[in-house]
């Protein structure tokens, strides 16, 4: 179990590094799809099957296909124009993100991680009822207001995308 997690963790890091270093943006997108699949596998190991399914369907499927469509619509053959021509900036970015990593990592490696009081859904309950049934029940009872608001947000996004993409600028 643990070794499978490490394999997928390393694969997802490699996919993310591919986004960072590959020249062609289409290769970047495909490597990001690989990362999303690995994260989906890790979600399955964490008993979050619903999240794993929407990770693969919505992220690796819908959103990345949208990215690839836009890339094939817009991208040019000449990838050199996107080269970062400021070496000091690269060094600064590296230092800054290393600082961010150390800062985040020190939060939970400095001492024993205190997770707070346990909730009402231990692993046995989740496996008995099923995680998808639990999520559906919670979504339509406790979180019904957020659910309705997020539906309106999605509608606004659809209308906004159509309006922005159709408008002609002079």
């Amino acid at each position: 179990m643990l070794i499978i997690f490490y394999i997928f963790a390393v694969l997802s890091i490699f996919g993310a590094l591919g986004v960072l270093f590959l020249r062609n943006p289409i290769h970047c997108a495909l490597s990001l799809v690989g990362t999303f699949f690995c994260l989906g596998a890790i979600y399955v190991m964490l008993n979050a099957e619903f999240v794993a399914v929407i990770q693969v369907l919505v992220y690796a499927g819908a959103i990345m296909v949208l990215f690839l469509f836009v890339l094939m619509l817009l991208s040019s053959k000449d990838t050199d124009q996107y080269a970062n021509k400021w070496p000091i900036g690269k060094i600064l970015a590296g230092l800054l993100s290393f600082g961010i990593f150390v800062q985040i990592a020190s939060l939970f490696t400095a001492g024993e991680l205190q997770l707070g009081p346990k909730g009402a859904y231990p692993l046995e309950v989740v496996e008995e009822v099923g995680s998808i049934a639990l999520i559906g029940r919670l979504l339509f009872t406790d979180y019904i207001l957020s659910f309705e608001i997020i539906a309106v947000l999605l509608l606004v996004a659809v209308i906004g995308a159509v309006v922005i993409a159709k408008r002609r600028f002079e």
């Binding site: 929407i54 346990k118 909730g119 692993l123």
Partner: peptide, 20 residues
């Protein structure tokens, strides 16, 4: 998962909608 709670998973549902 570590806190035996479902709130994080519900939040992910919302985060993925916002990301889309």
């Amino acid at each position: 998962r570590g806190m035996d709670s479902m709130t994080g998973v519900i939040f992910i549902f919302f985060i993925i909608v916002v990301a889309a």
